[in-house]
Write a protein that binds this DNA or RNA. Structure first.
Lengths: 162, 162
DNA sequence: CAAATCCTCGTTACAATATAACATTAACTC
DNA sequence: GAGTTAATGTTATATTGTAACGAGGATTTG
């Protein structure tokens, strides 16, 4: 979260994530994958889990240590790792990161295509599982979210480059 | 275009846009909208039209004048304008800009939701009109494009902020 | 026409986001 | 425990984007 473009009440801007449970689950996931959930990775994940909505890399950097900021590479590396593990998602249109709503666990890997509803006003994000764009409109409507613009970008390899 | 992550042939990396016709159409569109297609806006659009694939803002800045670079605000303002007019699209995941494949004309406005297939390798982009995510996979397959990751982000207002 | 207004631009400075390169430490392997 | 790999620490810098303010030109208004 960050800027408020309006002056109305934002007391709804609170999410409740069981941070400890998520951290434990992440430990288990990494252990099962033969990866190490090291201190900087854990701390980065903890901060993102505790943040209310998508979090900027430099907000992680600033809050990393009680006494002072972390160095950027420390945090950017952790963010890459967490993203690869499917524990967080990068929000391209905000240059920000948010905890995955449905992270994999030790038994069940599922790197999925997530879709996000991003409020211009309060900065909150809602991760929705969706299979169609019509579906996005539909789910948005169901959630009372007014969509102004949709970004759809598929990365991969074109015919000539394969 | 820019970086090549591979060493194979990229002679397919050529698009053919009739730049002059596009510039004329843009003039007409702006005139019809009561907007001014001023020199910096025109120059920015011209460069993006002539570029082979999505173009970075700083590439526009560097090539703006024959003799030297433009100042960033000049170009960023022009980019905002062109995007609002529906003449270009911003590619969030690349921090780059590409000419709209189906720009509005004087008679026919249609700010649309575009979807993009972005090749990791050659940097080319393909704008597709699509109504569903399944459709993206489908069109990608038709084009021989191997999708690795899809970004879907809807911006707007959440229920509480409306 | 002159004054007021508004939009656009030029310019300076800086903020925000991200990575390259290399030295160091920690963990794992044999 | 020596060698190897993975991760981190550190310094510096590259890239991307904006704030702020003054000047110029077009349009409107009187």
């Amino acid at each position: 979260m960050s800027q408020h473009l309006c002056d109305h009440d934002h007391s709804h801007d609170t999410t409740t994530i069981n941070v400890d449970a998520r951290l434990k689950a992440a430990e288990a996931l990494c252990a099962a994958s033969g990866e190490r959930l090291t201190a900087p990775r854990l701390r980065t994940y903890e901060l993102i889990l505790g943040n209310n909505g998508p979090m900027k890399a430099y907000d992680v950097i600033d809050r990393f240590h009680p006494e002072g900021a972390a160095k950027p590479p420390t945090v950017y590396r952790a963010l890459s790792f967490l993203e690869q593990m499917g524990l967080i998602h990068r929000i391209e249109s905000l240059n920000a990161f948010v905890a995955c709503a449905t992270p994999a666990n030790a038994d069940h890997h599922h790197p999925h295509t997530a879709a996000f509803l991003l409020c211009d006003c309060c900065g909150q994000s809602e991760e929705i599982a969706t299979l169609s764009l019509a579906d996005i409109e539909h789910q948005a409507q169901h959630l009372g979210f007014e969509v102004k613009h949709i970004t759809v970008e598929a990365k991969g390899r074109c015919k000539a480059c394969r």
